[in-house]
């Protein structure tokens, strides 16, 4: 994610005179000590596991036997495994339900907050963010009961409108969207606040000028708001894509991936193989493949966003 500076007391230029010679040596020593905990922890618990994972992905490897080098075989097995391919396609379908909904909600929210009184806006900002602090476990528990076949709130409500009861989490056609709803619920707060920040950054003068020229609300929306929000919307789409492809706990608790694998998202697929397989080279290869792509996409977006900022000053 891109980060801009928090408003520190005052801005100053970054450059500063470097004390030469002894000063620099002293700084290097202090820097090494200050960086040591960070680098050691990252080294042991992030970088080493990553290198080890890459290594293992070329071997048949289990906790109990000596590894045997198999080259790219694990990767080939993964790519030709229909179950894995299905889980990725399902992940993409899930993403297609979650991300556009989240961005739409965020866009509506941001425009709403801008148009209501200051007090209402403050309340709205706090309220929309509350689901974001709730754990996936709790969201899964609560939404499962909302979806309950007999006596669940959703069926009761739809019953008032004359609809028959549905086993939301028990049918292959409804289970995936039913898991997507709490995912949207958890993620909408962050997306909304980021969208709002972007919207408030558009100078009010643009709208005033447009009004003087007789532009209506729709013209303003399509000629000012949307073009200027293009980057933020793109950012939310990409980060939302990466985040929603990684949901694991919601389907794990709500449906255990069922019925008939209809909610087995990629991470759940990999997690299940981790916990069940004897040979883990396969699932590691799956995890690395999937996330090499995702990691590369988000790193690219991060670079783009940052470089654009640098150009803007």
């Amino acid at each position: 994610m891109a980060v801009t500076t928090l408003r520190a007391p005052a801005r100053d230029t970054r450059s500063r005179g470097r004390p030469a010679g002894r000063g620099r040596r002293r700084e290097t020593k202090a820097a090494l000590i200050m960086l040591a905990p960070l680098l050691i922890l990252l080294g042991i618990f992030v970088i080493w596991p990553l290198l080890h994972a890459v290594y293992i992905s070329f071997y048949t490897w289990s906790f109990y036997e000596a590894p045997v080098f198999v080259g790219l075989e694990n990767y080939l097995t993964v790519l030709t495994d229909q179950e894995f391919v299905d889980s990725v396609v399902r992940g993409l379908a899930f993403t297609a339900m979650v991300v556009p909904a989240q961005v739409a909600v965020a866009f509506l929210f941001a425009n709403l907050v801008k148009s209501v009184s200051r007090k209402t806006a403050a309340v709205l900002k706090v309220t929309i963010y509350i689901p974001a602090v709730i754990s996936e476990v709790i969201a899964a528990i609560v939404f499962s009961l909302i979806y309950a076949y007999r006596g669940g709130i959703l069926n009761w409500f739809l019953g008032l409108l004359g609809r028959e009861d549905t086993a939301w989490l028990g049918e292959t056609s409804t289970a995936l969207p039913a898991v997507a709803v709490p995912a949207i619920w958890i993620g909408m707060g962050v997306a909304s606040l980021i969208m709002l920040a972007g919207l408030l950054d558009i100078p009010e003068a643009y709208y005033e000028c447009a009004s003087l020229d007789g532009a209506g609300p729709w013209t303003k929306m399509f000629k000012i708001t949307l073009p200027l929000m293009k980057n933020i919307i793109l950012f939310l789409l990409v980060t939302g894509f990466a985040a929603s492809l990684q949901f694991l706990v919601l389907p794990l608790i709500m449906t255990q991936g069922g019925p008939v694998d209809s909610t087995t998202l990629p991470n759940l697929f990999i997690f299940r193989h981790f916990t069940n397989d004897l040979y883990i080279g396969y699932s590691i290869a799956a995890a690395l493949l999937l996330f090499a792509v995702l990691g590369a996409v988000s790193a690219l977006i991060f670079r783009l966003v940052r470089s654009e900022k640098a150009v803007d000053g």
């Binding site: 992030v46 080493w48 596991p49 994972a53 883990i280 990691g295 590369a296 790193a299 991060f302």
Partner: peptide
């Protein structure tokens, strides 16, 4: 390290 997803290193972290 910001771009390394948890699941990619979950198992090898477990080994560590």
């Amino acid at each position: 390290t910001m771009f390394i997803p948890g699941i990619a290193i979950m198992l090898t972290s477990f080994v560590v």
